[in-house]
């Protein structure tokens, strides 16, 4: 099986890699590019731990082939902060203890960012619906939902 050469952009950086046809994007991120912030949970698209944003779409990296990233723009959790300055969602998750074991957190943050990018003024129902693809076995979701709603409210405040 020959390897596929892929030219793509990851977290704003032009990136090239070789991957096996059967390597998922999640495998490529973690095993070839050492971007291990993106987690593997179920490996079947049910848990959202591997959520990444590809060309402004939230997807599961476990259900995408590495070869499919050709020419795309990929955002992972490693690209969410600006240097040492955390993204407001990251800061709020810490302040509100919206995480415990942390395995779901990178995917949850990326999914929350994708949600707010599309809908800056979500209702609680919309947040819960938008994050339905991200499972968390620790928090009971309430702190996560409140953190996302708080960030949305603060961002509306600052852009007013």
């Amino acid at each position: 099986m020959s390897k596929t050469h892929v030219t793509t952009t990851i977290n704003g950086e032009p990136t090239e890699y070789l991957c096996e046809a059967s390597q998922s994007m999640l495998d490529v991120l973690r095993d070839e590019l050492d971007l291990t912030g993106t987690k593997e949970g179920c490996g079947s698209g049910d848990c959202g731990a591997c959520s990444i944003i590809v060309d402004d779409r939230l997807v599961c990296a476990c259900l995408m082939l590495g070869a499919e990233a050709e020419g795309r723009r990929v955002l992972t959790i490693e690209g969410m902060s600006h240097g040492d300055k955390l993204h407001p969602l990251q800061q709020k998750f810490i302040e509100m203890a919206a995480l415990q074991c942390g395995v779901c957190t990178p995917g949850m943050l990326i999914a929350a960012k994708a949600l707010l990018d599309r809908n800056p003024n979500p209702s609680e129902t919309e947040v819960r619906f938008g994050l339905a693809g991200n499972l968390c076995r620790c928090t009971g979701y309430d702190k996560i939902v409140r953190a996302v709603l708080d960030v949305a409210a603060e961002q509306r405040e600052t852009t007013r």
């Binding site: 959202g48 959520s51 259900l63 994708a114 949600l115 938008g130 994050l131 339905a132 693809g133």
Partner: peptide, 9 residues
């Protein structure tokens, strides 16, 4: 149906 991630893909 599905989740945001799945509907997007």
């Amino acid at each position: 149906g599905a989740s945001a991630q799945v509907r997007n893909a």
